[in-house]
């Protein structure tokens, strides 16, 4: 990377993220609004690293109770059985449906974990101003954004079960607090992946100072 590519900030041109109109910001510290659609023009998100970090850490905190607390509690006449995500995976596996077990394991346990680790890796490398594997890291980020929403599968299943299995007094399913944390993990990682600005990855290759 010998040649520094032109950036919007350098060219004093801003791209509206909604309608795609190129316009000149009224000032570097006050970008103003898009003359066509009125969306606030933003050169760069403010403090992208810090914001992403905050979201990643919040998600990591939530990840623990999401896996420890029960996602749903099945009440039958005989018993009250709380089920955690891992417990559900184990039960599915024990019941013989290992494909489902694998899907739940991947979608609900692995993916959030992978996302957290990957985001942390991206953030650390950006902060270290590393310029290696830039292309791979951008691909990783793109992948994170795609797979993120699939983790909602578990929340979906829990919601459906709770709504459908209401056979009082024989059997009911009530949501556990774990599902709230799990949802929080999924949403926070989606936001984190969104907030992370992939342009930071190749920022080290040019002169710094434009991302104010």
């Amino acid at each position: 990377m010998t040649r520094v590519p032109l950036t919007g900030a350098a060219a004093k041109i801003v791209l509206c993220k909604v309608c795609g109109l190129l316009s000149r910001p009224s000032g570097p510290s006050m970008p103003g609004r898009c003359p066509r659609c009125g969306d606030p023009a933003v050169l760069r998100q403010r403090d992208p690293i810090q914001r992403t970090w905050a979201l990643v850490i919040a998600a990591a905190i939530c990840y623990l109770p999401a896996n420890v607390l029960p996602v749903m509690t099945t009440q039958t006449l005989r018993s009250v059985v709380p089920t955690t995500i891992i417990g559900g995976v184990v039960r599915l596996y024990a019941d013989g449906s290992w494909v489902l077990a694998l899907i739940v394991l991947v979608a609900s346990v692995m993916i959030p974990l992978v996302k957290l680790v990957a985001l942390a890796y991206l953030l650390i490398t950006v902060q270290l101003r590393s310029d290696r594997y830039g292309r791979e890291r951008v691909r990783l980020h793109r992948m994170l954004k795609v797979i993120g929403r699939w983790s909602m599968l578990d929340v979906f299943v829990a919601t459906f079960s709770v709504a459908l299995v209401q056979l009082r007094p024989y059997m009911t399913v009530v949501p556990g607090s774990g599902v709230l944390f799990f949802t929080a993990v999924v949403i926070l990682t989606i936001f984190a992946a969104d907030t992370f600005d992939p342009r930071l990855i190749w920022d080290p290759g040019k002169t710094r100072g434009e991302d104010d």
């Binding site: 810090q50 905050a54 919040a58 905190i61 939530c62 109770p65 926070l188």
Partner: peptide, 23 residues
Amino acid sequence: SVPKKRARLSIVWIIPILAAVVG
């Protein structure tokens, strides 16, 4: 050009703090 006071701590940090407190 007034050098902007850099907000050392983003308001976003409320989210992890909240998560931690609840947890």
